[in-house]
Protein backbone atom coordinates (compact mmCIF):
# COMPACT_ATOMS: atom_id res chain seq x y z
CA UNK A 1 0.00 0.00 0.00
CA UNK A 2 1.19 3.49 -0.76
CA UNK A 3 4.18 2.37 -2.71
CA UNK A 4 6.11 5.50 -3.61
CA UNK A 5 6.40 6.04 -7.29
CA UNK A 6 9.68 6.70 -8.97
CA UNK A 7 9.58 10.29 -10.01
CA UNK A 8 12.02 10.30 -12.87
CA UNK A 9 10.12 10.68 -16.08
CA UNK A 10 10.96 11.70 -19.56
CA UNK A 11 9.15 14.96 -19.12
CA UNK A 12 10.13 16.07 -15.64
CA UNK A 13 13.10 13.88 -14.86
CA UNK A 14 16.17 15.62 -13.58
CA UNK A 15 18.41 13.23 -15.40
CA UNK A 16 16.90 13.97 -18.75
CA UNK A 17 18.64 16.46 -21.00
CA UNK A 18 15.81 18.93 -20.61
CA UNK A 19 15.91 18.39 -16.86
CA UNK A 20 19.55 19.34 -16.75
CA UNK A 21 18.82 22.43 -18.78
CA UNK A 22 16.09 23.43 -16.37
CA UNK A 23 18.39 22.81 -13.44
CA UNK A 24 20.96 25.05 -15.01
CA UNK A 25 18.41 27.81 -15.21
CA UNK A 26 17.24 27.21 -11.68
CA UNK A 27 20.70 27.14 -10.20
CA UNK A 28 21.70 30.21 -12.05
CA UNK A 29 18.67 32.11 -10.94
CA UNK A 30 19.32 32.24 -7.22
CA UNK A 31 22.87 33.59 -7.22
CA UNK A 32 21.96 36.00 -9.98
CA UNK A 33 19.08 37.26 -7.88
CA UNK A 34 21.28 37.57 -4.85
CA UNK A 35 24.00 39.14 -6.95
CA UNK A 36 21.53 41.70 -8.13
CA UNK A 37 20.53 42.33 -4.57
CA UNK A 38 24.16 42.66 -3.62
CA UNK A 39 24.69 45.37 -6.20
CA UNK A 40 21.90 47.45 -4.76
CA UNK A 41 22.32 49.68 -1.79
CA UNK A 42 19.35 48.01 -0.14
CA UNK A 43 21.11 44.72 0.49
CA UNK A 44 20.95 44.01 4.19
CA UNK A 45 23.33 42.08 6.35
CA UNK A 46 20.63 39.44 6.80
CA UNK A 47 20.45 38.89 3.06
CA UNK A 48 24.22 38.72 3.03
CA UNK A 49 23.89 35.75 5.37
CA UNK A 50 21.87 33.93 2.73
CA UNK A 51 24.59 34.57 0.21
CA UNK A 52 27.12 33.27 2.67
CA UNK A 53 25.20 30.06 3.10
CA UNK A 54 24.94 29.61 -0.65
CA UNK A 55 28.64 30.19 -1.00
CA UNK A 56 29.43 27.52 1.50
CA UNK A 57 26.66 24.99 0.92
CA UNK A 58 25.41 25.72 -2.56
CA UNK A 59 22.11 27.03 -3.84
CA UNK A 60 19.07 24.83 -3.38
CA UNK A 61 17.82 24.05 -6.89
CA UNK A 62 14.37 25.32 -7.71
CA UNK A 63 11.86 23.12 -9.51
CA UNK A 64 10.36 24.80 -12.50
CA UNK A 65 6.81 24.23 -13.62
CA UNK A 66 6.34 21.18 -15.79
CA UNK A 67 5.91 21.83 -19.42
CA UNK A 68 2.42 21.61 -20.77
CA UNK A 69 1.30 18.04 -20.54
CA UNK A 70 0.80 16.10 -23.69
CA UNK A 71 -2.77 15.18 -24.41
CA UNK A 72 -3.17 11.49 -23.59
CA UNK A 73 -4.32 9.30 -26.45
CA UNK A 74 -7.08 6.74 -26.27
CA UNK A 75 -8.93 4.34 -28.47
CA UNK A 76 -11.19 1.37 -27.98
CA UNK A 77 -8.28 -0.80 -26.95
CA UNK A 78 -6.35 1.73 -24.90
CA UNK A 79 -8.55 3.78 -22.57
CA UNK A 80 -7.33 6.70 -20.50
CA UNK A 81 -8.08 7.74 -16.93
CA UNK A 82 -7.77 11.48 -16.36
CA UNK A 83 -9.08 14.27 -14.19
CA UNK A 84 -12.15 16.16 -15.26
CA UNK A 85 -11.15 19.09 -17.41
CA UNK A 86 -8.52 17.08 -19.22
CA UNK A 87 -8.67 16.52 -22.95
CA UNK A 88 -8.22 13.06 -24.37
CA UNK A 89 -7.09 12.59 -27.98
CA UNK A 90 -9.35 9.88 -29.31
CA UNK A 91 -8.95 7.64 -32.31
CA UNK A 92 -12.32 6.13 -33.09
CA UNK A 93 -13.60 4.17 -36.07
CA UNK A 94 -15.52 7.19 -37.27
CA UNK A 95 -12.84 9.81 -36.80
CA UNK A 96 -10.19 11.41 -34.63
CA UNK A 97 -10.11 14.44 -32.37
CA UNK A 98 -10.20 15.41 -28.72
CA UNK A 99 -12.91 15.03 -26.14
CA UNK A 100 -12.87 16.96 -22.90
CA UNK A 101 -15.19 16.48 -19.93
CA UNK A 102 -15.91 19.73 -18.09
CA UNK A 103 -17.74 20.30 -14.84
CA UNK A 104 -19.79 19.35 -13.06
CA UNK A 105 -21.43 22.73 -12.89
CA UNK A 106 -23.48 22.50 -9.72
CA UNK A 107 -26.93 24.02 -9.34
CA UNK A 108 -26.33 25.25 -5.82
CA UNK A 109 -29.20 27.04 -4.11
CA UNK A 110 -28.94 30.81 -3.83
CA UNK A 111 -28.37 32.03 -1.22
CA UNK A 112 -26.46 29.10 0.18
CA UNK A 113 -28.35 27.48 3.05
CA UNK A 114 -26.85 27.20 6.51
CA UNK A 115 -26.67 23.46 6.10
CA UNK A 116 -25.54 22.37 2.71
CA UNK A 117 -27.37 19.56 0.92
CA UNK A 118 -25.70 16.20 0.55
CA UNK A 119 -26.67 15.98 -3.09
CA UNK A 120 -26.81 18.51 -5.86
CA UNK A 121 -28.00 18.52 -9.44
CA UNK A 122 -25.45 19.54 -12.00
CA UNK A 123 -24.30 19.29 -15.56
CA UNK A 124 -21.25 17.84 -17.22
CA UNK A 125 -20.21 19.00 -20.66
CA UNK A 126 -18.44 16.74 -23.15
CA UNK A 127 -16.62 19.02 -25.57
CA UNK A 128 -15.75 17.43 -28.88
CA UNK A 129 -13.18 18.86 -31.29
CA UNK A 130 -12.87 16.74 -34.41
CA UNK A 131 -9.69 16.48 -36.45
CA UNK A 132 -10.68 13.92 -39.06
CA UNK A 133 -13.94 12.22 -39.92
CA UNK A 134 -16.76 12.56 -37.43
CA UNK A 135 -16.66 12.23 -33.66
CA UNK A 136 -19.91 11.95 -31.77
CA UNK A 137 -21.03 11.49 -28.20
CA UNK A 138 -24.42 10.13 -27.24
CA UNK A 139 -26.17 9.53 -23.96
CA UNK A 140 -25.76 5.81 -24.30
CA UNK A 141 -21.98 6.23 -24.56
CA UNK A 142 -21.82 7.73 -21.09
CA UNK A 143 -22.14 6.38 -17.58
CA UNK A 144 -21.28 7.77 -14.17
CA UNK A 145 -20.67 6.28 -10.77
CA UNK A 146 -19.82 7.64 -7.33
CA UNK A 147 -17.30 6.39 -4.81
CA UNK A 148 -19.88 4.22 -3.11
CA UNK A 149 -20.41 2.36 -6.33
CA UNK A 150 -23.79 3.95 -6.97
CA UNK A 151 -24.71 4.64 -10.55
CA UNK A 152 -25.50 8.26 -11.37
CA UNK A 153 -28.22 8.60 -13.97
CA UNK A 154 -27.35 11.00 -16.76
CA UNK A 155 -29.92 12.65 -18.97
CA UNK A 156 -29.16 14.85 -21.96
CA UNK A 157 -29.77 18.56 -21.82
CA UNK A 158 -31.33 19.10 -25.22
CA UNK A 159 -30.54 16.64 -27.98
CA UNK A 160 -29.39 13.13 -27.10
CA UNK A 161 -26.14 13.35 -29.02
CA UNK A 162 -23.57 15.78 -30.33
CA UNK A 163 -21.36 15.27 -33.33
CA UNK A 164 -18.66 17.31 -34.99
CA UNK A 165 -17.08 16.84 -38.36
CA UNK A 166 -13.47 17.59 -39.30
CA UNK A 167 -12.43 21.01 -38.03
CA UNK A 168 -15.63 21.43 -36.04
CA UNK A 169 -16.55 21.37 -32.38
CA UNK A 170 -19.64 20.36 -30.49
CA UNK A 171 -20.77 20.33 -26.88
CA UNK A 172 -22.86 17.59 -25.37
CA UNK A 173 -24.35 18.37 -21.97
CA UNK A 174 -25.75 15.83 -19.55
CA UNK A 175 -27.43 16.37 -16.24
CA UNK A 176 -27.17 14.24 -13.11
CA UNK A 177 -27.59 14.36 -9.37
CA UNK A 178 -24.28 14.07 -7.59
CA UNK A 179 -23.55 13.23 -3.98
CA UNK A 180 -20.75 14.80 -1.99
CA UNK A 181 -17.56 12.85 -2.58
CA UNK A 182 -15.69 11.41 -5.50
CA UNK A 183 -17.18 10.22 -8.75
CA UNK A 184 -16.32 9.52 -12.33
CA UNK A 185 -17.83 9.71 -15.77
CA UNK A 186 -17.00 7.11 -18.39
CA UNK A 187 -17.11 7.41 -22.16
CA UNK A 188 -17.51 4.30 -24.26
CA UNK A 189 -17.37 3.60 -27.97
CA UNK A 190 -19.14 0.51 -29.22
CA UNK A 191 -19.25 -0.70 -25.62
CA UNK A 192 -15.52 -0.29 -25.09
CA UNK A 193 -14.25 2.15 -22.51
CA UNK A 194 -12.33 4.99 -24.12
CA UNK A 195 -11.90 7.46 -21.27
CA UNK A 196 -12.74 7.92 -17.60
CA UNK A 197 -12.75 11.35 -16.00
CA UNK A 198 -12.73 11.52 -12.21
CA UNK A 199 -13.97 14.44 -10.17
CA UNK A 200 -15.03 15.52 -6.69
CA UNK A 201 -18.28 17.03 -5.52
CA UNK A 202 -17.67 19.43 -2.65
CA UNK A 203 -20.80 20.45 -0.81
CA UNK A 204 -19.29 21.48 2.52
Amino acid sequence: MNTPHIAASRRTGFFSRSGVRRLAVALAAVPVALLAAGCSSAKSSSDQSATDVINKLGAVPIPSAPQTQLTPSADESHPQLVAVGSAVAVTLPSGTGTITALGPTEDLPTPLPATMPTQVAGTITLRVATKTGTVKVTTTDLSSRDDHGNDIALTPVGVAQAAATAGGTADFVVRGTFSSGAAQITLREDGHVVAVWDFNIELD
Partner: peptide, 22 residues
Protein backbone atom coordinates in the same frame (compact mmCIF):
# COMPACT_ATOMS: atom_id res chain seq x y z
CA UNK B 1 24.64 19.09 -12.56
CA UNK B 2 27.40 19.23 -9.98
CA UNK B 3 29.34 21.45 -12.29
CA UNK B 4 26.41 23.76 -12.67
CA UNK B 5 26.06 23.84 -8.90
CA UNK B 6 29.67 24.85 -8.55
CA UNK B 7 29.29 27.50 -11.21
CA UNK B 8 26.23 28.77 -9.47
CA UNK B 9 28.00 29.03 -6.16
CA UNK B 10 30.94 30.69 -7.81
CA UNK B 11 28.68 33.32 -9.27
CA UNK B 12 27.41 34.15 -5.82
CA UNK B 13 30.96 34.48 -4.51
CA UNK B 14 31.43 37.51 -6.71
CA UNK B 15 29.58 39.59 -4.19
CA UNK B 16 30.55 38.08 -0.89
CA UNK B 17 32.99 36.10 1.10
CA UNK B 18 32.29 32.77 2.65
CA UNK B 19 30.06 32.75 5.69
CA UNK B 20 28.96 30.51 8.48
CA UNK B 21 26.58 27.68 7.76
CA UNK B 22 23.52 27.60 9.90
Amino acid sequence: AAGLLALSAAAAMVVTTSGTAQ
